[in-house]
Each structure stands twice: as structure tokens, then as C-alpha cells.
Design a protein around this nucleic acid. Structure first.
Lengths: 154, 154
DNA sequence: TATTGTTATACTCTATAACTATA
DNA sequence: TATAGTTATAGAGTATAACAATA
């Protein structure tokens, strides 16, 4: 191995990037969601579909607007998702008791049943993703991530 | 507050989602990169451009293929980025000493100068993002994130 | 006048197939 | 034959403007 002009042959030096929280958070989220995509295939739920359905199930009567605010989605992009989930008979829209512009979103019996399974799968995935971590470490990780995104805004 | 059909008015219950590493990692990375986008505007560098330039600066002579492998990019998507950065005279391609198919990528004087500033900005951003964390916590966060994405693969 | 939900649309990001030139 | 780089293109994901119905 000569010395004049150091040509890279092995693994490149990623020291700086790996010192950045954003870089590592992105890599971690991509890894987890790749796994998620595979394991959630039986339910035909993308991460965003899972989040939407989960929030509806745990917050019956929630509105589109509230879903957007909670998940950082834009209203026009939610329309198609809700339409598709309604067509699959996983959720239904009921007239809102107090506001004629909104609809309250509710899981159907089928939707509730499926989400019970899907959430169990998500929790199992979680345990697999955190397999190299002790329970205390997993808890710490989530606590520190929250400090990042709750403080930074959004 | 009546009890019959619990209509959601306040903040929705996000307990389950917030217990998932993937959900929290995504929120954290979005928050950090939103900030990144604003502060990096003077350099006209998206996160991916910054990563590419940073790797080139710290690994002079690196090839497209190595960049793709290190950053999880697909070759066709890298072409346009490199072309744009070359046009801005931030990097240049030199014939690869050993392989006629490849080019070695090198930062130009202008590119090296700009990246020195950009990386200083990135490190400052990092300190702001981790402002609510002690240095030890920041280190722990990155260590745990790495455990997630290195273990899960890719 | 402001807000909810919607349509249409544009832009970015990511992914696949196929080609060329070198190895 | 296999690989590095490229082209063209398709599909997600994300963004803005403008509108109807209701508050």
C-alpha cells in the first residue's frame, strides 16, 4: 500500500456523519421500517396506515384534522388513505355530533379485530428491533429521542 | 364531560405509537432535518448532499459505488446529485488509477472550503439539537441508535 | 371571516429495467 | 460473465393553491 495519494479501497471513513444524531436517527428508522414493511405485509398496512388506524382505534371519534396534527400529515394526503381504509371496511365515518363539517372516525368490527393483531405484531417487532438492547436501554433510547423531537419542535 | 360515547376533544392518546422505537426515531429525524434544512440554506446543501460531500472530503478518491454502499443510495439516484455538485465546482471526477470504469471523486478547493464551514455548522446544529441532553446522554443516544440499525441490517 | 374536508396538481424521493464500457 | 456508471422512467411520498360546506 503506497502513500502518495491515499486511494480508498476498504470501508470509507464515516466518522463525522456517525457523530450526528440526525444521521443515526435516520438510519435507525429506515432499518426498523424495512422490517416493519415485511412483517406487516399480511395486514397490508404501511407505517402511516398503521399509525392512522391505531390512533382511530384508541381515539374513537377522532377527526381528520386531529389525525393530521398528531401525525404531522397534510390534510390532502390523508384523504386518499382514509378513503382506501374505508373501502376496505376497516374504518367508518360518522357524522360529528357537534360540528357538521367534520366526521368522527371509528374502527369497524373488522378493523378493530385486525388492529388488535397488527398491534401485537408491532409490539413483537419492537422487541426484535430492540433485541440487542436491555429493557432499560430501550426505555432510555425512547426517552432521549423524545427529548430531541419534542424540544426541537414539530 | 359525559361518558356515553367518548368524543375526543383534547390531545389524542398516542401511548402505543410513542412506545415504538421506529415512530420515535422517525419523529426525531424529521425534527433534526427540518432544522438542518433551514441552517444549511446558505450552503444550498440538502442532507444527502452534505453526506455525499462530507464522505468525499474525508475519503478523497472514493467512488460512486462506495458512496452508494455507505449511504444506502441507489446508483441511478446518485448520478444527478454528483452532476449538480460537479457543475457547482464543489467536486471533480478524476480517472481511477486502477479501474477504468470508475472515477475517483475529489473535493475542489472551493468544495473543501465550503465543507469546512458546512461541517462546522452541522456540529453546531448537533449541539443545539442535543441541547436538552447532557453530553453523556447524547453519546448514549447515538450508541443505542447504532445498535438498532447495525443489528437490523443496513 | 375562519375552519374542515376535498380536488387537482406539482415536486421530491425512491425504485426498476435496460444500456455502455470496462474488468 | 460480472461490475461501474448511466439513462429513462415509474411509483411513492410530500407540498401548495383553490374550492364547497359549515362554523
Amino acid at each position: 500500500m503506497s502513500a502518495a495519494d491515499p486511494v480508498n479501497v476498504g470501508q470509507p471513513d464515516t466518522t463525522l456523519l456517525e457523530s450526528l444524531v440526525g444521521y443515526n436517527a435516520r438510519r435507525a428508522y429506515l432499518a426498523v421500517f424495512e422490517h416493519f414493511h415485511v412483517e406487516m405485509a399480511p395486514y397490508q398496512l404501511r407505517p402511516v396506515d398503521f399509525s392512522v388506524m391505531s390512533l382511530i382505534v384508541h381515539n374513537p371519534g377522532i377527526t381528520s384534522r386531529q389525525l393530521c396534527a398528531a401525525l404531522g400529515l397534510l390534510p390532502p394526503n390523508l384523504v386518499g388513505m382514509l378513503k382506501a381504509l374505508e373501502k376496505r371496511e376497516l374504518l367508518e365515518r360518522r357524522p360529528h355530533p357537534a360540528d357538521g363539517r367534520s366526521h368522527g372516525l371509528h374502527g369497524t368490527a373488522q378493523g378493530l379485530k385486525m388492529m388488535a393483531l397488527a398491534e401485537r405484531t408491532a409490539v413483537r417487532l419492537e422487541q426484535e428491533a430492540a433485541a440487542g438492547l436491555t429493557p432499560a436501554e430501550a426505555e432510555t433510547l425512547i426517552r432521549l429521542l423524545k427529548k430531541i423531537y419534542i424540544k426541537t419542535g414539530s
